[in-house]
């Protein structure tokens, strides 16, 4: 696979830094009581999200669970409107009615974040069925956490994708824990890709989910496979640096373990790679970092200044 050029790498870097700064700001706003409900941060998993989205072809689709901010930003949703959704404003991407877990952008083929573990897997199958039904060359990348692989939806959806030959990349973002339960405490077969054999679908790779280029390449290959040959199951081995959601006491892992992973920060790795490849790129990276700080400040300002939803918003879109 051709190595990405400098512009592409800088764009990936920009998106990853944007996600990181966005999430850090969300954590602060949550602590200030400006963001309510659940808040699941994507910090540490940026390489997986950006690697996946960068691999999508023009008409491909992506759908994910509730840890969805990173995907929303990666597909190009405006941070202003995403932040407004966090703050429950009517300028939010779901008009303030969805919140952190329910970001989506139909125009970008991002079919949303979903709050019930595994609940979006059959939706992915249905979106892929549309492509098969209309004979369109479109692939659905269905992201899920490792925790989603133990609910019945996983079994039913992978099996249906096999018998109906649906173009889906079932992509497990394996961050080691389903909430606080480690994968090997929750799964009889902790090497999740091996389950593909049981469904008669392609067993894809387990990739280093902290390496943006590796994720991009592997997902590109998986999309090519799904397009021609049907479903594939793959894993991106990643790690969330923060708790499952805000207020997680993190009794299930040690500080040493977290420190080991943060040393391999995916943003630092991409930064190092770019500087190695391109002399003088450091100044580009710094410019990006400053630009992102400004973008986030503008997003927060926009969100804070936006109006809250109204009674009319409350009662609209119950029915089409």
């Amino acid at each position: 696979m051709a190595a990405p050029g400098k512009e592409t790498l800088l764009e990936w870097y920009r998106t990853m830094v944007l996600i990181r700064r966005f999430e850090e700001r969300c954590a602060e706003l949550y602590q200030q009581g400006k963001i309510g409900g659940f808040l699941h941060l994507y910090i540490g998993q940026e390489a997986t999200g950006v690697g996946i989205v960068s691999a999508l072809r023009k008409n491909d689709h992506v759908i994910t669970a509730y840890r969805d901010h990173g995907i929303a930003l990666a597909v190009g949703m405006d941070p202003k409107h995403v932040m407004a959704e966090m703050l429950g404003k009517r300028t939010g991407t779901s008009g303030g009615k969805g919140g952190s877990m329910h970001l989506a952008d139909r125009s970008r083929n991002f079919w949303g974040g979903y709050g019930i573990v595994g609940g979006h897997l059959p939706l992915a199958a249905g979106i892929a069925l549309k492509a098969r039904y209309l004979e369109q060359d479109e692939v659905v990348v269905c992201m899920m956490g490792d925790g989603a692989t133990n609910i019945g939806y996983f079994h039913e959806s992978l099996n249906l994708s096999a018998i109906w030959d649906l173009p889906v990349v079932w992509l497990v973002e394996n961050n080691g824990y389903g909430m606080g339960t480690a994968v090997d405490r929750a799964s009889g077969q902790p090497e999740i890709v091996k389950r593909a054999i049981g469904y008669g679908i392609k067993e894809g790779p387990r990739i280093d989910g902290m390496d943006t280029l590796a994720v991009h390449d592997a997902v590109s290959e998986a999309i090519a496979h799904a397009s021609k040959h049907g479903p594939i199951l793959m894993e991106s081995l990643t790690y969330r640096f923060e708790g499952h959601s805000m207020g997680d006491p993190e009794r299930y892992r040690t500080k040493d373990e977290v420190a080991r992973y943060t040393e391999g920060d995916p943003i630092g790795r991409l930064r190092g790679y770019i500087i190695d490849q391109y002399k003088g790129a450091a100044k580009n990276l710094e410019a990006i970092e400053q630009e992102v700080v400004k973008t986030i400040a503008e997003a927060v300002e926009f969100a804070e200044d936006s109006p809250v939803p109204t009674y009319d918003d409350l009662v609209s879109h119950v029915y089409a």
Partner: peptide, 28 residues
Amino acid sequence: ARRVRDTPISEMVIAGSAVGAAMAGLRP
């Protein structure tokens, strides 16, 4: 068989994939 589709005994994915297909523009 494209328009009359037998499924396995899998009610979760029967209902859920109908949702996805409908969101994407079909009328299951």
